[in-house]
Design a protein around this nucleic acid. Structure first.
Length: 404
RNA sequence: GGUGGGGUACUCAAGUGGCCAACGAGAUCAGACUGUAAAUCUGACGGAGCAAUCCUUCGAAGGUUCGAAUCCUUCCCCCACCA
């Protein structure tokens, strides 16, 4: 595995929390870090400049969605995901494992793979671990995720076990295919779509995939033995540039989420980044950093902003509330984002009541900048050796007005 | 002046004797969203009450009926066409 271009180092620790540096072929990410989600090759509503200005250093896209549209071969023919989207920094592609879960009504899971009925046009697609590796290789993100299977939060032991064990078997197949492509180049039969201006869609040196790393995903629901077995199974199968923990924040109680991270953490290699998939409520981020997680992604900041909920140091805020009608204050005092420095709450509320897309964009931008800011706050505290007091105070303030 | 159509809750708009405090939509208010089928979804929306329930409503006033937004009479407005 050409992981030489991937490296991870920690410089400070506080309990399980770590301050680290994740090196990828497209740049360096200081951890803990939040990765904004750009499912279709764009962080919804935001430009790459918006994301960059918000402090984003690494973003993700989704292999399943890009495979359906515009097609992974098309992305490759257009120069790969970096060139296509103009995001020049580190990128990660999720495999579509989450869609096995979220599009449950449209698919059938078999050992060989997943049969998907496209949500776009109803066409049938076979999605195997091998095919997913080819897709993610064609997309060309720095980090690619294995195909996995997850089940709804708090799932039964047997179902969790079955999904966990299948994820391990699929990891084996993903890994084998990943190495085959590494060795033999991309699948020789692939005919790339014709793209104007590109005369030779795949010159010889293009046959070799760009340096990429494959991350395995720990599964096992909220069952401790299963989580431990999953981590052991993953580590038995090789050395990875990073390890993800998946299948959390999918409906289970927060206490179970935290407890499950606690179960996995001591077993995970200390010299590799840990990526907690799909977690991104501000308090969950801080709790997970305290439990040794380095990387996060989540659609919630963007989506909740789009739907009118803003994150603040004092908890959630619903900008549509009538009380903000004449509120001239910024959304969050001292927040450096565009929404907070250029506009006031009364105007932002107005944009929402008037259904102006600008309001959605500004709150999505703010929330994205906010969670990224929480991560940089955590890094500063770690660097000063003050993480424990910082996180305690941060969580106390954020939750002070919470109803629960 | 004549003929026809119409006035329903914040707005638009169903409803023509009991199942109507009154379909539906919008607006408004509140809430939810965690590896994005999400500019989505949920709830409230005449008043009071935790609730059973009670009170006030369908242009106005009378009337018929066990019972009316719905039927009758008169009146007030609006629209179209004809003079």
């Amino acid at each position: 595995m050409r992981t030489a271009q991937f490296a991870f180092q920690t410089s400070h620790e506080s309990g399980s929390a770590r301050l680290g540096t994740f090196v990828t072929p497209h740049g360096v990410v200081q951890t803990p870090a939040f990765m904004p989600v750009g499912t279709h090759g764009a962080v919804r509503g935001l430009s790459v400049h918006d994301v960059s200005r918000a402090g984003g250093r690494m973003v993700l896209s989704n292999a399943y969605h890009l495979y359906l549209r515009p097609g992974d071969g098309m992305v490759r023919a257009l120069g790969g995901l970096h060139a296509f989207t103009r995001w020049s920094g580190p990128m990660l592609t999720d495999s579509g494992g989450f869609q096995v879960f979220s599009l449950a009504k449209l698919r059938t899971v078999r050992e060989h793979g997943v049969e998907f009925r496209s949500h776009l046009d109803g066409s049938l697609h076979e999605y195997t671990p091998e095919r997913v590796m080819q897709i993610e290789r064609n997309l060309g993100a720095d980090v690619m995720m294995q195909l996995d299977e997850l089940i709804a939060g708090g799932g039964e032991y047997a179902a969790s076990q079955s999904a966990m064990e299948r994820s391990l078997r699929w990891l084996e197949r993903c890994s084998t295919e990943f190495e085959r492509i590494e060795r033999d180049g991309r699948e020789p039969g692939l005919v790339l779509p014709a793209v104007e201006g590109i005369t030779d869609a795949h010159p010889d040196d293009e046959r070799r995939a760009p340096p990429q790393a494959l991350f395995p995903i720990v599964q096992g629901g909220v069952h401790e033995e299963l989580r431990r077995a999953s981590v052991r199974g993953i580590l038995d199968r090789g050395d990875w540039a990073g390890i993800a923990v998946g299948g959390l924040s999918v409906g289970e109680a927060k206490a179970d989420t935290y407890r499950t991270i606690d179960v996995c953490e001591p077993l995970l290699p200390r010299d590799k980044p840990r990526y907690l998939m799909g977690v991104g409520f501000p308090d969950d981020l801080v709790e997970a950093v305290a439990r040794g997680v380095d990387l996060f992604d989540c659609v919630a900041p963007n989506r909740m902003g789009r739907d009118g909920t803003a994150f603040t140091p004092d908890g959630k805020m619903q900008i549509k509330q009538a009380g903000y009608r004449t509120d001239r204050r910024p959304l969050v005092a001292d927040c450096p984002c565009e929404a907070c420095t250029e506009y006031d709450r009364a105007y932002l509320r107005h944009l929402f009541t008037a259904s102006e897309p600008l309001g959605q964009r500004l709150l999505a931008l703010h929330n994205t900048a906010f969670v990224i800011g929480v991560m940089s706050g955590a890094r500063r505290a770690l660097g000063k050796g003050a993480f424990e007091s910082w996180s305690t105070e941060w969580l106390a303030r954020y939750r002070r007005n919470a109803p629960e």
